[in-house]
Structures are given as C-alpha cells and as structure tokens.
Design a protein around this nucleic acid. Structure first.
Lengths: 339, 339
DNA sequence: ATTTCTGACTGAACCGGATAAGCGTTTTCG
DNA sequence: CGAAAACGCTTATCCGGTTCAGTCAGAAAT
C-alpha cells in the first residue's frame, strides 16, 4: 500500500492538489470549511508530508549535522559528548529538527562529510567542536557557505559564530582555591594540546600559578590510561605535587586510583580536581571536587544559535556560564608544607 | 551562486540531462568517451546529487534512525550507547549511510518519531533498543512496515529480526566462576526490571545460583547513585554477600567505592564483577573483573542486518558472541567461609 | 542493396509538493 | 447599480533527478 499523497487527498475531497497544499500549510486561499474537510481526510488516511518533495522546492531539510572526530573508544568514556548531544537534541526536538550524526577519523573526512551533507541538501547547518589552532575546518565551512556554529573559543572561529565558556576563569577560581588551601605545588593533567580550549586552560593555569605556586602541565589524550600514567609520573617525581587538576573526570578518577594504589591519602596527601562533573565524580571515594557546568544547556545554547543562523539571523558570539567549582571530598588543606 | 545541477552539466557537455544521469550513475546508454567527459565536468563544477530529488524518485534516504529513550543524564554516563552508536556508525559510513539520532522521553514519543521519519521518507529503517515485555513498539513498527532491527532478545521481537547475545550464558559463566572461588552468597545489582535483557539475566542468575549459593537481586535504574545505594544496603544486611555482580560498570565502580568506604577490602572481603567492560573498569583500584563484549562490533552487526533488511533480504535473528568473563583484581577466593 | 540489430542518445512523463498567476463568483462601496 | 476588491479555487510550472519509450546513425546480417 502506497503512502498517501496530497493528490489522494485532493481526489477524495474533490478539489485540486493546490487547495490541499494551501489547506495543510495554513495558507490563505481556501475556506475554513474546505480546510477542515481536507485536514480531516489527511488525518484519516494518515498523510505525512514527504520531506524530499518539500526539500526539492528549496525548503529546509530540518536536520543539522554533527561529525565527531574522535576515536570510538574515547567517545564511549567521555560523558561530555553524550551530554552535549542530548542538550542539542532537546533544543532541536522542540523545533522538529533532527540531528545527523557521524563519527569520522580526521578533519579531512569531517569536512568531506559536511560538504556532502550540505551539497546534497541533507542538512541545513552544522556544529564544529574540538577547535584547533588554524583549524582547516573554519575556512572550509566558510567557503561552503553552510550555517555553522562553533562550540568553542571565538578566537579561532573566524567569522563563524561561537558558543563558548570562559575556561580561563574556571581555572583561575580553582587555583585560587587550591592556593588558599595552602597548595604550593600544583600539577595539571591536560587534554590534547592541539585543542584551543586546552591551550586556553594551559595559559590560565600558568598565569594563575605564577608567583603563587610551582606548576607543571602534562598533556594526554583524555583516556583514563594516560591519565593514570601521567599521575604515576607526577607522584613519583622528587617534587611531588600536592594537588592535581584534571581536564576530565575519567582521568581524575584514574588519577585517584593511582594515588590510592601508591598509598597516598586523598585529600590529606593529594588534592584532586576534575574538570566536568559527571555522576562518576560523586560515585568514587572520596567524591571529587569538580568544575561543574551544565553541558546539556551548553549544547542547547549552541543549537539555539544554529537554528537562528539557519533562519537568517545574525548571531553574535555567545559566552555561556563558566564552570563553577564544586568542592567535595577530594580537596583539602595542606597540613604540612612538604618542602 | 546556485548549486550546479545535472542540467548545467548537460548544457556544458552538449548532451541531454538523461545522458548525464546515465553517465553519473554508471548505467549503460552512454559511450565511455562521453561518460568520461561528463564526469570530468561534474567534478570540475563540483556537482553533488541532490538527495531530495533522488528520494523523490523512490530512492532510499540513505539514513537510518535511532531514537533513544533514556533520560539525558543516564546516557552521559553509560558508555554502552556511545560505543554501540560508534559501531553502528562505522558500518553505516562504509555504505554511505548516515544515522539520524533523537533522544525521546518515552516509547510513545519514540514511535511517533519513527512514524514521522518513515512517513516523511527521511529514514529507510531503524533500530529498536531496550526492549521490554509486550513492547508497544514492536507491533507499531510492524504496522508501519518500516525495516527495523531489534537490538535485543528475539523472544520479544516478534517478527522483527533481532541481533542479540546470550546474556544468560555470560551470567552462568560468572556464577560458576564465583562459586568455584568459594562464594556462597552472591548478590546482583541489576538494571531496569522492565527490560527483557534484565529479566533474562535475572532468571539465569537465579538458576545458576540455585543449589550452589544464596542469591539476591536488586533492581536499579543503572545510575551510580542507585548502584551505590543498593550496595550499601546489601553490605549492611545481616547475611552480607561475598560477591556482587553489577549490570553495568558505572554501578560496579560506585559499588567498589561504597565497599572501600565501609572498610571492606576488595577482593578479600568482597568480590565485584561488572557487566560491560569500559576503560573505567581498568582504571579503578583494584581493576574490575568484567563481562567483556565487543559493543562496537555488536552495533556493526546490527547495522549490517538493517542494511540487508532495507535491501530487501530476509534477515534471520543473529546471535552475537556472548560476553566473556575477564578476571581482574576485583574477584578472589573466599578465604574464610563467613557462615 | 535492403533489412535487422545494436549502441548512443533524446523527449516526455513522473516523483510529491510549492508557488505564481489566472479566473469565475460573491461581496463591498462609491 | 456598476466597478473594484476579495475570496475560493484551478491551471500551469517548477524543483532536480530517474525512467521509459522512442529516434537515429552506423554496423552487421541476409
């Protein structure tokens, strides 16, 4: 049994296709009586607009794209993306937009995917995440002319509107807190050094510590394994840090385990702060002091901007709330200065 | 500047639209010389097929759908779905299929989403996950006539093809192992009791323990919080279990923390087994004995079946590999029978 | 040399809906 | 009361690609 079309409705109602089109789209040109009759028939036979036919007339695809350029195994452990996606989703769903998702291997592939989606009228716009310095995707998207919202720092987003949060501010708050607790040797286990937000955090970390505490930053790939390895190295060094700030909660948990394995008491011997606060942080012992932010809201804000951009509006960069420090059991005062 | 169409190519090449269509689709009816010329022009002006126009001619949408019916915050912590999605993705990408994702609140909404996608020719098929008993989605999808692959036990998938793995077998292996280690009081912290795979595990757990060990099952919502609460209750009971099997790794990690908080040594006083083996399991101390399975492969298998189904093939249920027990530090022999 | 066949290509129709313009009929208003 | 305006609906086209039924020239068969 074929899917009903407006032609079917038209013949049943004894009017032309056009009258049906007008009626179903709430356009003037049909009497209320006829409209009601047409709508009733449409419902009765279960008519749905064929999005392809609509798209052919220059309508929107009502879909936006997101290509994620991280290996599958990283995605699985990073709550961040799932939360971001669900936030985006929520906003999109309210506007009957769907999200097209694809996991890609590198930026070249990512650009190719967007090029295809846009070229084939499959998406009306897209998100760019994990921005790098001199990111090839920015000029590529610009040239493509596709509406794109960058989820990340506006410094490198070029003319593309960005939705971002001030990671520097969050780092400064954290360091101030740790210094106030008496920490004078602070380490940071950071994410991929190529990413802009990592660099922003790196710099803020170095600046905040300058003059107040010794500091060292180690870069990793965000996995628990590397987080554990980095922690092991840091805690084995002569000048062992009294506090470590991690760039995600997976590494923080891994680091906590390493510390306990090395018979260090958290927070007595070592304070730990996790960036991003998933339920995971609260589940371990002691629960982790974390930099909390509302990631779903972050995604929702980005989605709002993208929808506005698609609608033809001008979208200024939007600075979302910075992460706030949520102190829990994993941070404490330094009892004896280890020097 | 407008997007080039086959008409543009046709006029440049001095042939008809039809010749261009044949040439670009590898169909007979054009000479190789002409074909080469047309392809060259198409590349030069950057032509892309308009998927809407193709879809209008009854072509596939080259997209499959997945509506996830779990609250956003659960999704974020469950590595399972992200891994499943990346596995699905990988298979789809090889066939130039995209994945349409939507997070929904309940099954009713989920059915509605699928109905819309199918009705609007946006997707060629879909996946059903988290099957329940007498699941309303099964008859709904059947009635819709949309190709659907159920990721879950075939007992409840009706006429829809299922991709599943024998959770019962994995449980039996686990219990046999725990019993061999001397455990005589085993608890299970299970997931949502409405889900078919939970019931399957429940039953296998009860049967395996019967006669060999005392057993108790507690149902939760998969969150670390509930996992921790359940663990606390179990470990506070008079007949404290010597081993606990968790239905996901988040709860297992939470349970481990609770045990340590209660000054119990793992694995001396309590053995812990986690279902599903994310990097998380290996990051904590001790690393968790886990029921390992290749979730991305699981997703890929499901995607293969769905693509076959869309191609019109008959797809029999496919039993994927059962999870295998990967012993790590969180399980050990019972030293003194606590009785 | 005529017929037949084949390969290369074209014209027209079609998919399902949107849009512009046209055209009777009724209403409004000077 | 007659003309303009408003209403309600229709016809014609278009979107971009696919498909089917030709057409036409040249080669092979008779």
């Amino acid at each position: 049994m074929k899917r009903p079309t407006i032609a079917d409705i038209a013949s049943r109602a004894g009017v032309s296709k056009v009258a049906v089109s007008y009626a179903l789209n709430g356009q003037p040109g049909v009497s209320e009586a006829t409209r009601a009759r047409i709508v009733a028939i449409a419902e009765e036979i279960g008519w749905r607009p064929n999005s392809a036919a609509r798209a052919l007339n220059g309508a929107r695809a009502n879909t936006v794209g997101l290509a994620l350029c991280r290996p599958a195994r990283f995605l699985g452990v990073e709550p961040f993306f799932m939360e971001l996606i669900s936030g985006i989703e929520g906003e999109l769903a309210d506007h009957s937009y769907a999200l097209m998702l694809q996991v890609v291997a590198d930026h070249e592939q990512e650009i190719e995917v967007y090029r295809r989606w846009w070229g084939e009228s499959r998406t009306d716009g897209a998100f760019l995440v994990d921005l790098r310095y001199s990111d090839a995707r920015v000029p590529a998207m610009e040239q493509l002319g596709m509406p794109v919202v960058v989820i990340g720092h506006p410094a490198e987003s070029g003319p593309l509107p960005a939705v971002w949060s001030d990671d520097g501010e969050a780092i400064r708050e954290t360091i101030a807190y740790l210094v106030a607790l008496g920490h004078r040797r602070i380490a940071r286990v950071a994410g991929l050094s190529e990413l802009v937000h990592t660099a922003v955090r790196d710099q803020a970390f170095a600046e905040s510590c300058a003059g107040a505490a010794e500091h060292v930053t180690v870069h990793t790939d965000y996995t628990g394994e590397e987080g554990a390895r980095a922690t092991r190295r840091l805690l084995s060094s002569a000048a062992r840090p009294t506090a470590i700030v991690y760039d995600n909660d997976i590494m923080a948990v891994a680091g906590l385990s390493v510390a306990q394995e090395m018979r260090l008491d958290v927070p007595r011997d070592l304070s730990i702060v996790a960036w991003d606060d998933s339920p995971l942080s609260q589940v371990v012992r002691p629960p982790l002091t974390a930099l909390t932010r509302d990631i779903p809201a972050y995604g929702a804000h980005a989605a709002q901007r993208l929808l506005a951009l698609i609608a033809g509006e001008t979208v200024p960069p939007f600075e979302d709330q910075a992460a706030r420090l949520t102190p829990r059991g994993s941070t404490g005062a330094v009892l004896i200065d280890p020097r």
